Amino acid sequence: MKKALIVWGGWEGHQPKEVAEIFRGQLEQEGFHVEVSDTLEAFADGEKLKGLDLIVPAWTMGRIEQAWVNNVSAAVQSGVGIAGCHGGMCDAFRENTDWQFMTGGQWIAHPGNDGVEYDVNIKCSSSPLVEGIKDFTVKTEQYYLHVDPAVEVLATTRFPLAEGPHSLNKSVDMPVIWTKRWGLGRVYYNSLGHQANIMEIPVVKELMRRGFNWCAEGKSLAPSNQAQGAYTGMQDNQL
């Protein structure tokens, strides 16, 4: 049985407890054994983290011990997946650039605040994570992020829609969903999820379900000579 850890907390405006419960239900339906924690001390045992298949952060803002970030990073490098949404993963610890490097981006603005109606445009891709998914419209916060150019973008949204100092720039397609690799681990992020009701939208829920499973499957596919330890720094063509 695959094992997942959900860690929730931080700013309550994102309803982290409620989002964590949605994620718990999804993962249990997929056959995971799920542990849920409301303290960052859940990241203190590095060896325990390496025994997981999936880590799901749902923690907005706040501060984290560097040693705990190192533990999560080492676990992901060894093959454990990490997947999350909205500010719970990519606005978790604003001062910690190591966390941002691992997860692939950092929130910087949501012009128009909550209630912006916008399209999520699925990118043509061979990825099974978006196979059969059509473009859809949501009404929620539209995240503007600083994004790692190494990510594989699976969905985007067009800016600008709301007025602001950014609106005189040319239109840009901002990533909404992406994947990346961190060592031997898989990373999945979806910028939707300002509050729990957004994560209950069927298409959003399905996208997260696929992301969770994809990340968790990575550990079993990691090279056997690397899966027991952290990534050694070899390039992809050396694995």
Rank of each mutant, 00 (worst) to 15 (best):
Q226K: 15
W11P: 03
F93R: 10
L5R: 08
T140W: 06
V80C: 06
N237A: 02
H86T: 07
G31P: 10
L129T: 04
E206T: 06
I82H: 03
P175S: 06
L145E: 11
E117P: 00
L221G: 13
Q15A: 03
L154E: 05
L184N: 08
F43L: 10
W68L: 12
S126W: 14
R24Y: 03
F43I: 07
E65A: 12
L239G: 12
V176E: 01
T179K: 03
I133R: 08
P223N: 02
F43Q: 04
K170S: 13
L192W: 07
I108Y: 12
Q228T: 04
V80S: 02
H86S: 13
H14G: 06
N70M: 08
L161I: 09
G87P: 08
D114Y: 11
P175E: 03
E152W: 01
V36H: 15
H166F: 07
A44Y: 07
D135H: 08
W8K: 01
E41D: 15
E35Q: 14
E35P: 08
D45I: 14
W68R: 11
I122V: 15
M102W: 03
A75Q: 08
W68C: 15
A196T: 13
R181W: 13
S224T: 11
V116D: 04
V34Q: 04
G25E: 14
Y118C: 07
G193D: 00
K17M: 06
T103S: 03
F159R: 11
D53C: 01
L192P: 01
A216T: 10
F101D: 11
A4E: 03
P16Y: 04
R181I: 04
P149Q: 15
E141K: 08
Q238M: 10
V76M: 10
M208V: 04
R209G: 12
H166T: 05
Y143F: 14
F101R: 05
T140D: 14
L168S: 07
G51A: 13
M234I: 11
Y143A: 15
H86K: 00
P165F: 05
S126Q: 11
T39E: 14
I198Q: 00
S224A: 05
K50S: 12
I133N: 04
A42Y: 12
D45Y: 14
G31V: 05
P149H: 00
P111Y: 00
V56E: 03
G51T: 08
D173E: 06
N169L: 12
Y118V: 15
P165G: 02
M89N: 01
N213T: 08
E163W: 01
G25K: 05
Q195K: 05
L154I: 03
V147Q: 03
S127C: 10
M174Q: 05
Y188A: 02
S73Q: 09
G87D: 01
I201C: 14
S127L: 04
